[in-house]
């Protein structure tokens, strides 16, 4: 374990860097945590953007011109269900995730 750390640290010390430095901006695949997924009743949606503002993962996007006006990026949606609770019209429901 110590050796594993020593090698990269030696390289960094040459450049006067004393700790690990993040060089990649990445995203974990948090979509596979989901056991329930939000489903939107588009006919009742008033496009108020409340769910967009309150989503902790910031994956909801409102597209007012589209038929399916609430776009959710399921790569990262954790299925926490906050959107279902903050929706003033209760038009978002959690349904079991099927993969």
């Amino acid at each position: 374990m110590e050796k594993q750390q020593e090698q990269p640290m030696k390289m960094l010390k040459k450049r006067n860097v004393l700790g690990p430095v993040a060089t990649d901006f990445t995203a974990a695949n948090t979509g596979n945590w989901r056991i329930e997924r939000p489903e939107v009743d588009y006919s009742r949606c008033s496009k108020c953007r409340t769910c967009e503002r309150y989503c902790p993962t910031n994956v909801i996007e409102i597209r007012p011109d589209d038929q399916e006006c609430v776009y959710i990026n399921f790569d990262y949606c954790k299925g926490c269900g906050i959107c279902t609770n903050v929706c003033p019209r209760q038009c978002i429901q959690l349904i079991p995730e099927v993969r």
Binding site: T23, F25, T26, A27, A28, T57, N58, Y76
Partner: peptide
């Protein structure tokens, strides 16, 4: 600093 995944804001979407 490599941006390997796109994000809408300054924070990554896939945070643990």
């Amino acid at each position: 600093y490599d941006i390997k995944h796109e994000a809408k804001g300054l924070v990554t979407h896939g945070n643990s």
